[in-house]
């Protein structure tokens, strides 16, 4: 960031968030509601961008944390947690929805990263397996509704112990979600720009070398994985208040791979690109799945392959990179994809 003129990246950020803040003015209520739902997916995508794009942990089970968050929120706000029936508070739900997945990720990370440690592909396969197991568990656990899941999850409420004003209309939901997503974006952006973020990317690019510099690479990966899981859980919590249900697919393998596609197409190394990737793919799906029918998924799969092979920065990430990269001869901050 130079002091003379605002950096291109800042301008892009202002443009994107500005447009999103003003978008409801030109959209119908239904579209506003849709967009608010896409923000939730975008939040989820950012959690994976942190874990995968910045720390190099290719997680095939990110939806496990999303799902735990969603179920936690549902259980609390439906008053199904023993001892907490009297307080179906949204705040408490969010607290649970962030802490439970983060705690689970922390335990899992302690098991997977320390000692001999699990590298690249092995981590991917193990998280994939965990996602499959988690979905099977959710289907067979009657307390959380089994195959049908939990229905009639209430929307967000403002009362401290539950009750109070419900945030139900599309407009308040839109701005609440946008504010939440923006706040998390700022936090994560600050995190990835800090010294901590630099070490994360160093681990991503060369774990061995970073270790030899004296950094506790396992510890860094553990915190990133934990934070990512917490953010994914938060996204899950917001999701259930928007859709009013929690069901086993939320916690499973398919959603885990979908979020990977959003992040890969958007741009794994940039939080903003990952966020926009989720919105882009979901809106394209909305528009194209009707006209293209079965061919939509075929096109998405091929586009995904193409993007992985030709644009490792992602489609949106590549555009942002072109716009913000310093001119020829100077190597930019994000010049080298992982």
């Amino acid at each position: 960031m130079t002091g003379r003129s605002p950096s291109p990246l800042l301008l892009i950020n202002l443009a994107v968030w500005g447009v999103l803040a003003l978008a409801p003015l030109g959209l119908g209520a239904w579209q506003v509601g849709q967009l608010a739902q896409y923000f939730t997916y975008g939040l989820f995508a950012m959690s994976l961008a942190l874990v995968w794009g910045h720390c190099g942990l290719l997680c095939f089970g990110q939806a496990v944390f999303f799902g735990i968050g969603g179920y936690a929120m549902s259980l609390v706000t439906l008053g199904m947690i023993p001892g907490l029936e009297a307080a179906p508070s949204s705040y408490l739900g969010i607290l649970f929805a962030v802490l439970l997945p983060a705690g689970f990720a922390n335990l899992l990370g302690r098991f997977l990263f320390y000692g001999k440690g699990l590298q690249g592909a092995y981590f991917a396969i193990v998280t994939l397996a965990i996602a499959v197991v988690a979905e099977r568990l959710a289907i067979n656990w009657t307390y959380i509704g089994g195959l049908n899941g939990l229905m009639n999850v209430p929307p967000m409420t403002l009362g401290l112990l539950g009750g109070g004003a419900e945030i139900w209309d599309s407009m308040p939901v839109y701005y609440l979600t946008l504010t939440l997503v923006f706040a998390v974006y700022l936090l994560l952006e600050a995190l990835t720009r800090s010294r901590y973020g630099i070490v994360l990317r160093a681990i991503r690019d060369n774990q061995e070398r970073t270790g030899y510099f004296g950094y506790d690479t396992a510890g860094y990966k553990l915190t990133a994985f934990t934070i990512g899981a917490g953010v994914a859980g938060l996204a899950g919590a917001v999701f259930v208040t928007q859709f009013n249900f929690a069901s086993p697919p939320l916690i499973g393998f398919t959603l885990s791979t979908e979020v990977l596609i959003w992040v890969a197409l958007g741009g794994r190394t940039m939080l903003l690109a990952a966020f926009l990737g989720a919105i882009l793919v979901r809106s394209m799906e909305n528009v194209l799945s009707e006209t293209l029918g079965n061919y939509w998924l075929l096109a998405l799969g091929l586009l995904f392959v193409l993007s992985v092979v030709l644009f490792p920065r992602g489609l949106i990430g590549e555009i942002i990179h072109r716009l913000t990269a310093p001119r020829r001869g100077v190597v930019g901050r994000n010049a080298k994809p992982p």
Binding site: G56, L58, G120, L260, I261, L298, G301, V305, P312
Partner: peptide
Amino acid sequence: FLDTILATWGLSIA
């Protein structure tokens, strides 16, 4: 290395 997982995953969808 990791991108081979993604590329072949995309192929599997297609």
